[in-house]
Design a protein around this nucleic acid. Structure first.
Lengths: 256, 256
DNA sequence: AAGTGGTCTAGACCACTAA
DNA sequence: TAGTGGTCTAGACCACTTT
């Protein structure tokens, strides 16, 4: 049917068209609510419902007391997951005598890295326990929870889990920046020969929205990397939560 | 501060807690709007604002005339992108004399695959043109646009682009199900030796919401695979849009 | 102080679904 | 028909930002 749609749909369509055509460029301020009220001859609530639609499509952001703006897209950063934790990369980092592969990478780009690290012993969530092949429902893991910042802007959250039995008495239990756990594990004779990565897209939890300062309608990529040894035993699981508007996950795959 | 938050936040928090605790299980119906109005002693609008929050967090879905329900999560399907288009897989498909790798895979799971294919000659979008190294702003590509269904439910959208010059006069220009373009290209002496994959998470466009029948607050993974030959020349780009609630992208990566 | 968005009400009327 | 959600109004008052 071409019966006229709801008023707020009409308004939203109208504004959306102006955004997509570029007439309202990223960063531009939309007409104020009272303006929209008078241009469309509707009540304030109706205008707000329309704007709410656009907010939840990720097209605009509202700033209390300042106005409603066309959302700006940050330049995303690409991570090559097929080489980022290669032995070559580990070796290079070790040789440079630095502490963390990620921090080194970011510094190299002329940006300022920082990470908050919290270490705890936990019962891992179901999915992680399954990947670590921890059967006992009470089997424990060392969780290294990190929030990473670039130029003081929250950038990603990375949680690495290592079975408690493996980590006992190592630097993995210390709450400070360390080289990738893979390197530490290797020094214990636990060598990862393969990574198994799972990637999903989902809406963030409320905690993630807060910790990563996510704008509304920003989905996240959840990247789960399981490192296994030559016998297929899982040594470690790393769950990285990447804000969708700032990240590209890259893989190079041989075609045969 | 513990200053009391907005009423609708209180209501949303309350209902959210009941969902996360499992007291309201997936599929369960929430109290009707008039019920919430009386339990919380607020106006209908306020209740609706609260529910709207939960809808946009992806926690509940509203069905007009029927009620508001805790959202159910479909069992996701895992795709191993590090082997799905291997030469071995291509060979197996060719030997079986079937038409499409994806359809074969799905049939093997006892599900019913279907795909709508539309072929056209287009100026590829900027990102794709860049990946295909098509400098001329008017360089054309053959676009094979497919919507794939499993058991008649929309499942993913896959757009493959091949430079028009390469596809001229081949089955790639025909609007029907064919073996993966890689196989066809190979028969022309264009051999992909490497895939370069980029993955992002984003909110769907309105077209995608419609074509893939996406529930509100469902993000998508956009998976872009570029196939290159031994000289690093891009032969083909495939952009797959995967609803976030139904897909897991999987990669196996050697650790050295 | 002026301008912007945020919260809330009370009520009217419409549209869809199920019994 | 009864019950559910959907759209819309007119107006009050609050909170944040800028000048």
């Amino acid at each position: 049917m071409t019966t006229s749609r709801a008023l707020y749909h009409t308004i939203a369509d109208d504004v959306r068209a102006r955004i997509e055509s570029g007439q309202l460029a990223p960063g531009a301020r939309l007409p104020a609510e009272p303006d929209l009220v008078s241009t469309y001859g509707v009540s304030k609530n109706t205008v707000r419902v329309a704007l709410n639609l656009l907010v939840n499509e990720g097209l605009v952001v509202v700033k209390h007391g300042r106005g409603t703006f066309v959302r700006e897209r940050p330049t995303p950063i690409t991570t090559d997951w097929s080489t980022i934790e290669s032995r070559a990369a580990h070796a290079a980092v070790a040789e440079a005598g630095v502490l963390d592969q990620w921090a080194t990478l970011v510094s190299g780009l002329g940006r300022r890295p920082r990470q908050d690290v919290k270490v705890s012993i936990v019962e891992p969530p179901d999915g992680v326990a399954r990947l670590l092949q921890l059967d006992g429902s009470r089997a424990l893991a060392v969780l290294r929870h990190r929030i990473r910042y670039i130029d003081e802007e929250p950038y990603q959250q990375a949680d690495s889990y290592v079975p408690a039995a493996m980590a006992r008495g190592t630097v993995l239990e210390e709450p400070r920046d360390i080289s990738a756990p893979g390197g530490v594990l290797a020094s214990l004779g636990l060598v990862q020969v393969e990574y198994r990565d799972d990637i999903i897209a989902r809406m963030p939890t409320r905690g993630e929205i807060e910790r990563l300062k996510l704008p509304p309608a920003t989905p996240v990529m959840e990247h789960t990397r399981t490192g296994v040894d030559k016998d297929g035993r899982a040594l470690r699981v790393m769950v990285t939560v990447l804000p969708g508007d700032r990240h590209v996950a890259h893989y190079v795959v041989p075609a045969d």
